[in-house]
Amino acid sequence: MTATTEAAKALAAPPGPGRRNRARDFRATRWGWAYSAPAVLVFLAFVIIPTGYTFYVSLWKWNALNPALSKFKGLGNYSRLFNATQPTFLSSLWHSLYFTGAMVVGGTAISLALALLLQRGGLLLNSTRVAVFLPHATPMIATSMIWVWIFNPKFGLADWFLHSLHLPTSQWLQSSSSSMPAVIIYSLWHEVGFTTVVFLGGLATLSNELSEAARVDGCSAWQEFWHVTWHQLRPVTVFVVAITAITSLQAFTQFYQLSSGGPAYSTTTLSYLVYQEAFIFSDTGYGAALAVVLFAITVFFTLVRRRTAAGGESHALV
């Protein structure tokens, strides 16, 4: 008898601090932090403290072989950001923003269009979903090698395709004016599968009633899409934009394998420059200063995205 009243009380009790006086409830515990400790320790050791350490390294003329011989430079590495020696920080910043902008606009538009095309289901459309997602699941380093051949002006598929349509061909990765668009095309091919599926997930949760009401009201297909579908997809779109922006800012492998930052530094992004300065030119301190700038930009993007987000999305990861 007492057990049932206990159970009834437990069911009726609101979750929260009110529970704490129930000594046997395993949920309220001082030891909760210990359960999160393994994950938190990994993050502290390899992410959070190292991020702080990046600031520290950026203040030194760092000696990679023997850190004890490093010379303190203060903000010297930061004033070097505005030097004009190639590859310059400002041009790499511009390349990063160019790449990120194109990926955000192109990636969002293409994946939304693909999701609308593929949302109906059925064997054929589902197979297309798998085909579109497949590149995203395969390693970038391997698929970049394939695309080096595709962009080859002598025997590549890209120019052959343009040629058979009687369109002007391009030097792709071998010319500084077309190298970035080529890397963007490759990256879209590799990335849109994921965001398409994210949009498909969003489309699956839309209410049919609103679309029907719109149709009954005599909306055209375009009006229905613009006012009903697109409007309801806004939180998903914000997520896609945010995740694409952050991945694109960090993108490295395709620049390493497709273009090595060239030709003439035309694809040297901020992420690539961090790698190049720190690990090719062995200027760890300057690389760290560039990394700090990259960190600041990422934080800025994340905070802007938080500020502009509507209240209902607080669970979103980015």
Binding site: F46, T51, F252, T284, A288, A291, T298
Partner: peptide
């Protein structure tokens, strides 16, 4: 942790 990209971490983690 989501705000601290791998490219930022690679230098201190290498050190």
């Amino acid at each position: 942790v989501l705000m601290m990209p791998g490219t930022v971490l690679i230098i201190p983690d290498y050190v």
